[in-house]
Design a protein around this nucleic acid. Structure first.
Lengths: 412, 412
DNA sequence: TGGCATTCTTAGGCAAGTGAACAAAGTAAG
DNA sequence: CTTACTTTGTTCACTTGCCTAAGAATGCCA
C-alpha cells in the first residue's frame, strides 16, 4: 500500500524540501533570507533548519557581517552528508558517477558494452561495479541514498524503462528497476537521459529555484528535459520534451516516424554524419559518435565542408530551441550531452542569435543559452541528481510519479 | 500584506478545491470515490464535503445502487450556487458572458467598439452593461464571484494587462483591473484569451482532472492555452503557449518578429486573407474576420482556390499542433476561437491526420483533436471560467500569480 | 554602560489530516 | 423475522505543520 497514491498529504513535507532546495541553490544562505524566500515565518524556518542540522544535512558555517544587529548565521549543505549514484546506459557503454549532496562528482568511470548483452548479466555487472568502486573510494554505504539509471528514448508505461526502438531490443520487457533494487539493495529510479540531464544542471549548476528552463540534450538522438520551478514537467505520459520529432521543414526528408522534416532526421548527429558521407568526406570512426567528433574537430580547424554541415544542423537546432522557448516560455536553454560536448561552441552562436532576435523583436524577456559545464557525462550526473532530487526535494505537487509504480508492480 | 507571497501555507486550502474540482469533473460522484481519487481518508472527505454542502456549493442527489452494503450518497455541484462573468475584449468588440458553476452559459451578448476608445469610458460602459444584464436575467448579485477579462496578446508584467502591439495602443499603461474592480465592486482577473479558452474547456467540457491538453486558439492571431493536471502552465513570464511565432519553414516569408516562416505569418487568418487577395479573390468584408469567414464558406461550398488556401494553412497548423503535442506530451488538442468556429471542420482532418500518423508510428499514445463546442465565444466563456477556477479550485501549487499583483499595486 | 537593531528561539494555539471506533443502511442466509 | 456480514459515512482524540507573540542572543553606537 505504500505507494498507492501520493495523496494531498504529500505536500506536507514540502517546506523542508523547499528550504533544502533554496540552500542548495544559494550555496550559502542565512535563516532570514530563507524566511524571505519561502514566505514562511522566522519561527518555522528556525525549527525546520534545526532539524536539518540535526539530520546532518546542513552545516552552520561562520557568520555574515552585521547589518546593524546580530549577524546572520550562514547555512550550507554538507556535501558529504549524502551520496547518490548515477548510471547512464547507452548503446556504446555504461557511464557511472558517484555524486555528493552538492552535485559534485566524487567518482566517475565508464565501461563498454551493455546494448546487446543479456539484461540479467548486465544487472550483475553493474552491481559489482558499484560495490567495488564505493569501497575503493571510501564512501560510507549508509550515506548512499540510491541509484539513478537513465537511458535514451521514450519511457514505456509498462516496465517504466526507457526503450530505444532500434537497439536494446532485449530490454523492452525486462523489469530493470526491480532487478537492480534487489541486486544492490538501494532504491532505484529510472528516467530518460534528457530529463536527468536537466535535473543535473539544476542541482549542480546553481540554478535558481523559481525558474523555467530546458536542457537540450544531443546524444545519438535529440531530446529535451524541462524543469519548471524545480519540478520536472513530464506531460501526460512522461514523454514531454520529445523534440526529436518536431517538424522544422514541411518538405524535408522522410523520417521513420512517418512525417517529413523532423529535427532529428535533418540535424541529429546521425544525419550530419550521413550528409558528410554523401558529400564524400572520408570517415573512419566505428560509430556515429566518433564520426561526429571528427567532423566537429575538422570544422573547428576551419575546414569548409564540415563547418557548413554543422552550421546547417545548428540552424535547425536553433529552430528547435526557439520553439521550445516559445511554447514553454523559458528563460534559459542549456546545451548538453556528448554531441554538444564535442561541438557545442559551433552550435552556440547560431542558437543564441536566433533566440535573441526573435525575443528581442517581440519585446519579451531574453532567453539565455549556455553550454553545460559537464556536457559529456551530463546524463550520468543527472541520474545521480535524480536521486538527490527525489529524496531531498520531492515537491511533485499533486503529480503522480509513474516511474515508481512499475517497480512495485514487478516486485510483488 | 495579503498578497505579499503565496507562501507554502497556500497549499492548505487545496483539499477543498481538489474535491470540488473532482466533483465538477465527474458530474456526479460519491464520497468513497472521492477518497480513492484524492488519497485522503474517508474522515477528511466527510468533513470537507459537509462544509461544501453547508456552503451551498454541493448537493446530495439521490443514492447509487448498493454494492453489497450501504448505498453511496451521490454528490453534485449546485450549478446555480455561484456565478461568474466573462468579458472578452477584442479589436472588433466586446463579448460578455454570465456562466454558472457548471460552466453553463446563463447569458451572452456582444457589443461593438472598444479598441480605439478612451479606456475610462470603456470601463464605465462595461460596468453599466454588466449591471443591467445581471438584474435583467435575475442573477443574485451576492452569488457572483467575480469578473474575468481577457484579450489577445502577451501579458505585460507592469500592468498585468495583455497588450496587442499594433492596436489598442491607449490601453498599454492603463490599470484596467483596478479600474474595473472599483467600478463594479467585484474581484477582477485578467488573462490572455487562449489561456482562458483552455480553462473554459476544462471547466465546462468535463475534462478529467489529471490530464494535459492545449487549446489552440485562432482569432486574429494564433495562441495556445496549456492546462496540466488542472493547472495553467504559464512559464517564466506568463507567456507560455505563444505558438504564433514558432517557425515552420526556415525559408518562409519574413515576420515582423525578425525571423522567417512563423506560423502566424504563414497560416494565420490575416495571412490567409492576404494570400487570397494576392490570388485575385474579391473580398468585401470590413475586416480580417469577415473575409476569413467568407473564404471558409467558399471553401465549404467546394470552391477550389479558397479550399487550397485553407488547406495550406491547415498543414502549417498541423505542424504547430504536432509540435505542441510533442513538446508538452499532450493527450488532447482542442481547436477553438472565432477562426476555428468558422473553418474548424476544414482544419480538423489535416491536423488529426498529422498527429495520428506521427504518434502512431512511434508507438506513443494517440493525441485526440476536437473542435470546441463553443468556439465562437470560447474566450469569453473562458474568462468566466477563470474566475470559477481561481475562486473554487486555486491549486497553483507554489506558482506565483503575477496577474493579481498589479491590481494591488495600482490600487494602493 | 545602556539603548537599539537585528537575528534567532521558545511557547501556546489553530487548522488540516489521520486512525480507530462506531453508527447507519443495505444484502444474504437461516 | 432474526442474525451475520458488507459497505458507507461520521465522530473524536491525536499528530503535525505552521503562525502569532513574546523573549533571548548578539552585535553596533552613543
Amino acid at each position: 500500500m505504500s505507494g498507492s497514491q501520493p495523496g494531498l498529504g504529500a505536500a506536507h513535507a514540502s517546506s523542508r524540501s523547499a528550504i533544502l532546495d533554496l540552500i542548495r541553490a544559494a550555496g550559502t544562505i542565512s535563516r532570514v533570507e530563507l524566511t524571505r524566500a519561502t514566505g514562511l515565518t522566522a519561527a518555522t524556518i528556525s525549527t525546520v533548519v534545526r532539524r536539518l542540522i540535526d539530520d546532518g544535512l546542513v552545516l552552520e558555517v561562520g557568520r555574515a557581517e552585521s547589518t546593524g544587529g546580530k549577524p546572520r548565521m550562514l547555512l550550507q549543505l554538507d556535501p558529504s552528508a549524502r551520496y547518490a549514484i548515477g548510471v547512464h546506459l547507452d548503446h556504446a557503454g555504461i557511464t557511472y558517477v558517484i555524486a555528493n549532496l552538492g552535485g559534485a562528482i566524487v567518482a566517475r568511470w565508464r565501461r563498454p558494452g551493455a546494448g546487446s548483452d543479456d539484461p540479467r548479466e548486465v544487472v550483475a555487472r553493474i552491481a559489482a561495479e558499484i560495490r567495488t568502486t564505493v569501497t575503493r573510494v571510501g564512501v560510507d554505504p549508509a550515506r548512499i541514498l540510491g541509484l539513478g539509471v537513465v537511458s535514451p528514448g521514450p519511457i514505456s508505461a509498462s516496465t517504466g524503462m526507457t526503450l530505444t526502438p532500434p537497439v536494446m531490443q532485449r530490454w523492452t520487457e525486462f523489469p530493470l528497476g526491480a532487478a537492480l533494487e534487489e541486486a544492490i539493495g538501494l532504491p532505484v529510479l529510472l528516467d530518460n537521459d534528457a530529463t536527468a540531464a536537466a535535473i543535473g544542471e539544476y542541482w549542480s549548476g546553481g540554478i535558481s529555484t523559481g525558474s523555467a528552463f530546458a536542457a537540450l540534450y544531443m546524444g545519438t538522438g535529440i531530446g529535451a528535459g524541462i524543469l519548471v520551478d524545480g519540478t520536472v514537467y513530464r506531460g501526460s505520459s512522461s514523454n514531454a520534451g520529445e523534440v526529436g520529432h518536431i517538424c522544422v521543414d514541411l518538405d524535408g526528408p522522410e523520417c521513420w516516424c512517418g512525417n517529413r522534416g523532423c529535427v532529428e532526421a535533418l540535424a541529429g548527429p546521425a544525419a550530419v554524419v550521413a550528409a558528410a558521407r554523401d558529400a564524400g568526406i572520408d570517415l573512419a570512426g566505428r560509430n556515429v559518435a566518433e564520426n561526429f567528433g571528427s567532423l566537429a574537430r575538422a570544422a573547428s580547424r576551419g575546414e569548409a565542408l564540415p563547418m557548413e554541415l554543422l552550421q546547417r544542423s545548428a540552424r535547425y537546432l536553433g529552430v528547435a530551441a526557439q520553439t521550445l522557448a516559445n511554447v514553454l516560455d523559458l528563460e534559459l536553454v542549456i546545451l548538453t550531452g556528448p554531441a554538444f560536448a564535442l561541438a557545442g561552441s559551433l552550435y552556440l552562436p547560431e542558437i543564441e542569435r536566433r533566440l535573441g532576435q526573435s525575443f528581442f523583436a517581440r519585446g519579451s524577456h531574453p532567453v539565455r543559452v549556455i553550454i553545460s559545464s559537464n556536457a559529456p557525462e551530463a546524463a550520468a550526473v543527472g541520474a545521480a541528481a535524480l536521486v538527490l532530487q527525489s529524496e531531498l526535494a520531492p515537491r511533485q505537487a499533486g503529480v503522480r510519479m509513474p516511474l515508481e509504480l512499475p517497480l512495485e508492480v514487478t516486485a510483488g
